[in-house]
């Protein structure tokens, strides 16, 4: 499995976010995306998922453009954006089970409870998510990482709203995934220490900010 990005260009309105962007990501690699606010980090991540159609260039998964293999690619992909994707009217466990089922997994109750235990939501399983705090809601979303069988994780600011303990926990989860042959692309201002594997860095700050001002 390999994620290849070739000469990617994205234009929003009349602003060029990035152009001629190329990189490769292989198993056991973590890519940290850097850039100031508005530099196009989220747009790049959404392009990698196929949610945003790039203006130029190709994104290849296993050598095939992702637009040509929607379902196959989605099976290997887990995306966590700014929105948690959980329903406020459902309980924690219902959210987790439904999200897993929609992603094509049917984990047993033990697996689900184990994931909630690990993520620090033990005994919260029957709470409606509307009653949880912001950080706890984020944890419900992150519990998906523990259940998912996806190879490629694309995480947009995954550390936001988490407390110190949860940040450490997430760092471990990400490091474990990379250890086990996974790939992770993320944007963050947090360091992610790895026990093995390789960290790649990509900066979208090529142009000074005052360049396009008028």
């Amino acid at each position: 499995m390999i994620l290849e990005v070739k000469n990617l260009q994205c234009i929003r309105g009349d602003r060029e976010l990035f152009t001629d962007l190329s990189f490769q990501l292989e198993a056991n690699q973590l890519m940290i995306l850097e850039g100031q606010n508005g530099s196009g980090k989220t747009t790049l991540l959404r392009s990698l998922c196929g949610l945003y159609l790039q203006d130029e260039g190709d994104i290849l998964w296993d050598g095939v453009p992702i637009q040509k293999q929607d379902e196959n690619y989605h099976r290997d992909l887990l995306y966590l954006g700014h929105l948690n994707g959980i329903k406020a009217d459902l309980t924690v466990i219902e959210n987790l089970r439904i999200n897993a089922a929609l992603a094509g997994n049917t984990p047993s109750l033990d697996v689900l409870m184990g994931a909630l235990d690990t993520i620090g939501l033990y005994a919260f399983e029957d709470f409606p998510t509307s009653q949880l705090s912001q950080g706890q809601k984020r944890r419900v979303a992150l519990a998906r990482l523990l259940i998912s069988k996806a190879k490629l994780w694309i995480l947009d600011e995954p550390f936001v709203a988490l407390d110190v303990a949860a940040v450490e926990l997430l760092q471990t989860i990400i490091a474990n995934h990379v250890d086990n042959g996974g790939m992770v692309v993320l944007t963050t201002h947090q360091e992610v220490p790895l026990t093995s594997g390789k960290i790649k860095r990509l900066s979208l700050n090529e142009k000074p900010l005052d360049d396009g001002e008028c």
Binding site: G50, L51, H74, L77, G85, I86, L102
Partner: peptide, 11 residues
């Protein structure tokens, strides 16, 4: 709430 985005990315 982002559920739609996840739905479009489901396999």
């Amino acid at each position: 709430d982002g559920a739609l985005e996840q739905l479009t990315l489901a396999p």
